[in-house]
Design a binder for these strands. Structure first.
Lengths: 255, 255
DNA sequence: CTTGAACCTCCAGTTACGTGAGGCGTTATA
DNA sequence: TATAACGCCTCACGTAACTGGAGGTTCAAG
């Protein structure tokens, strides 16, 4: 037992809930250096070390690195300039929080999709996730090309509608992978494309699809969009799909 | 320029937004290993590497470690068992989110206090922060000692009321540090204690304070509470304050 | 053929500790 | 007082997901 007000590292660790190794580490980096018994080398913690550790733990909780804490510790008065740092820290936390919230939403959507579909080709699933994840970047792209209306329309959709879209996307991707290899004029192939295009119309509405079609977008920009959210297809599948769609367009008399 | 569908590491990095050094790293740990020109050793990325990277980035976003991703990557079909992992991941994110939200609230309270006070002794400020931070542990302690009523009452307080309490606490701590050394019978000292006790009454209400006073709590448990949320005083200050309070109690005819 | 950019590998450093080895110091008990 | 059991010491390596630099090779353009 240590005397009153004197704690061995074990006792101090117990008292404060900070591990012995962490205390060793804080000593090592000069953050919290207690007295030492000069002969045995054993550390002796005292009351004021508790206060110092309290500061350290608090600042860590607020998100500071140990290095910054080392600097802050030597100021005995905390002035308004801390305010700035705190505001900054608040911003960082806000960003972090948003990221987490978005992740949660995406996970929930993925769970829903998995529940309904049971088993999904991983390329398809990850294409979907990646697409959700880059939603904001895709929106930027749309806005850069004067398609803000589309962004607005999309943001109005409910979670349910989005899940429906997810499923439509998965269905199409599945079918592409199944039908790939068949001639593009094949009836099944053409029906799949028809179904998909009709689903898109239904989701976005006629005029929005029209706007999308009318938008003047250069090949290079299309390329950029595809880099942001690539389809889950191999090059051959992609090529085949493109041709099948072109054929459909021609047949349907669309531009 | 690379040929179509073949990308040098620089091009691939540009295209995907993942740094060259990270791609090197992913190669090194066997996560994404592109072809290599056997003579020059230069990496050659192709279309399917984009899909793989997409998976990696997505899973990272969902919170998976690179090691887990390495394992998941080899499954081409994602079945319902991923569901479990996702649910787990969701839990983790939820916890993380709560922690962040609590940090944000605390930072906001600290900012408010700093704005009003301008300059605060660091020991006082960090004692306050530490106390906020361990609020839930303090509540546990209270509940263990049949003081659930107090917990409930505290949780009803608005943010504003809490900030007022913060300020009262700071005021008292400041005065303790200022008056320390004067005889405990000194009028100023006794008035400070009176003011503090009255503020506590006002905040908690008469009956709650009574309940707190009546509660049978052993010395050891008090010690435990003090370890959870220590006061910002040196031992001498603490001792002096205790004596001054005892004197006040006696004078006021309280038990 | 030269030059500069792009690429290569290898090594080291980052944060905040966890873990374990091998060896003293302290204390309770026989 | 001997000894066991435990607490403490230092040293040193491992972690995750990279980033940065040194020193050397390859590529593409002029």
């Amino acid at each position: 037992m240590g005397e009153n007000n004197k704690y061995s590292i074990g006792e101090f660790s117990e008292k404060t809930g900070v591990s012995i190794r962490t205390l060793h580490y804080y000593d090592e980096i000069g953050l919290l250096q207690p007295e030492k018994n000069p002969t045995s080398g054993h550390r002796i913690y005292k009351h004021h070390d508790i206060l110092t550790l309290q500061k350290i733990v608090s600042l860590k909780f607020l998100g500071y690195s140990l290095e910054k804490i080392t600097n802050l510790l030597h100021q005995s008065m905390i002035t308004v300039d801390l305010n700035e740092t705190l505001t900054l820290q608040l911003e960082v936390l806000k960003k972090e929080k948003e990221r987490i919230e978005q992740s949660m939403i995406i996970i929930q959507r993925v769970i829903k999709v998995l529940e309904e579909e049971g088993e999904v080709d991983s390329a398809i699933l990850f294409s979907l996730i990646h697409s959700m994840q880059t939603e904001s970047i895709q929106n930027e792209w749309l806005e850069r090309h004067n398609l803000t209306v589309v962004v607005e329309e999309l943001s109005k959709k409910t979670e349910k509608e989005k899940i429906t879209l997810d499923q439509t996307f998965i269905q199409m991707a599945k079918e592409v992978k199944k039908l790939y290899g068949k001639p593009i004029q094949n009836q099944e192939v053409q029906e799949m494309i028809k179904a998909f295009i009709e689903a898109s119309f239904e989701f976005l509405g006629d005029d929005l699809v029209q706007q999308l079609a009318d938008a003047e977008v250069e090949e290079l920009d299309i390329q950029e969009l595809e880099n942001i959210a690539p389809f889950p297809f191999t090059e051959d599948e992609q090529e085949w799909l493109n041709q099948a769609m072109e054929y459909y367009m021609k047949e349907a008399g669309m531009e």
